[in-house]
Design a protein around this nucleic acid. Structure first.
Length: 287
DNA sequence: ACTCAGGTATTAC
DNA sequence: GTAATACCTGAG
């Protein structure tokens, strides 16, 4: 474990609140000084805005510069993507203006998989609490500025955790799904590394769908928010369902099939559908 | 007491 | 293939 520091100099399209509250991650907490602290892989990271720059302090074994550039997707030109999407229509223009600072994080695939299985029919505060409890019970402790943090448990670390134990920790009906998915990964029936190397998004999606607890919405969130980083998928949750009906269909949201929404998204946003989804979701939910 | 929340699995047409 | 229903939990 080593302490490191790194400064992101004057990044464009980069705002901490947008990044951490737009719904893609569950483990970042805001501090009194407006900085945020979170756990990335096996590193604790604190990030604070200072003028136009962002000062990052970390404790962990990974090399911080590389980690940060990858995690915050710093090599992608969001400005260019925003300009492209803004030209599509005024809805895009408006929602992008609202969520200018969003970046799609490259999160650990395993953590994203389990986190979004937990997210099913759940609310955000509870999802966050459950993940925190899992980490505290089965992850590794890291001390950062005199506080304790816990890494997200690996599949191996969850190997012998029983369904009953999950139920004790408040996972509810998701207990069985987490247990079974963990075993499938451990038995290598689904190989996460292979998924990362597979460029065929539809194929990867099909494989994800075989995992207990992973349906269409969760699969798409994993594809978009993990280091799989497939920007063309379009996760449809209640909010996206709502906003798409209001903006593009003008119908009863209960009677429009998700297939239709998917098709409209594909036609309008093409291979940037996932990014468009994130702007629309964040704007509709929070503004 | 009752509804709702980043859906999925199961069962029945 | 598409529709209806149950499902842990805890906050409002």
């Amino acid at each position: 474990m080593k302490e490191q520091q790194y400064i992101i100099k004057n990044p464009k399209c980069f705002n901490l609140k947008d990044i951490f509250t737009c719904g893609q991650c569950f483990r970042w907490e805001e501090n009194e000084d407006k900085s945020y602290t979170g756990i990335v892989k096996e590193n604790v990271i604190n990030i604070k805005k200072q003028g136009n720059d962002y000062v990052i302090k970390s404790v962990g074994n990974d090399e911080i510069e590389k980690l940060v550039i990858d995690y915050f997707d710093l090599n992608r030109d969001y400005k260019a993507l925003q300009e492209k999407l803004s030209k599509i229509d005024e809805n895009m223009e408006k929602s992008i203006k609202y969520g200018q600072g969003i970046r799609l994080l490259n999160q650990d695939l395993w953590e994203t998989l389990i986190s979004f299985i937990i997210s099913a029919n759940n609310n955000i505060p509870r999802i966050q609490k459950i993940i925190k409890r899992l980490s505290k019970n089965f992850g590794k402790k890291i001390i950062f500025e005199n506080n304790e943090y816990y890494t997200f448990p690996t599949a191996q670390e969850l190997k012998d955790v029983s369904i009953e134990k999950y139920r004790e920790l408040g996972l509810g009906f998701r207990d069985k799904r987490i247990y079974e998915t963990t075993q499938i990964i451990l038995e290598n029936k689904v190989n996460l590394q292979e998924l990362e190397n597979n460029p065929n998004t539809l194929e990867v999606r099909e494989i994800l769908l075989t995992l207990p607890g992973v349906g269409p919405k969760v699969a798409d969130c994993i594809l978009l928010f993990s280091d799989l980083k497939r920007l063309e998928v379009f996760p449809i949750d209640v909010w996206v369902n709502r906003v798409m009906n209001e903006l593009y269909i003008h119908g009863d949201e209960n009677k429009i099939s998700k297939k239709q929404i998917e098709q409209i998204a594909k036609e309008k946003f093409g291979n940037l559908a996932g990014l468009a989804q994130q702007y629309l979701f964040y704007w509709r939910r929070d503004s």
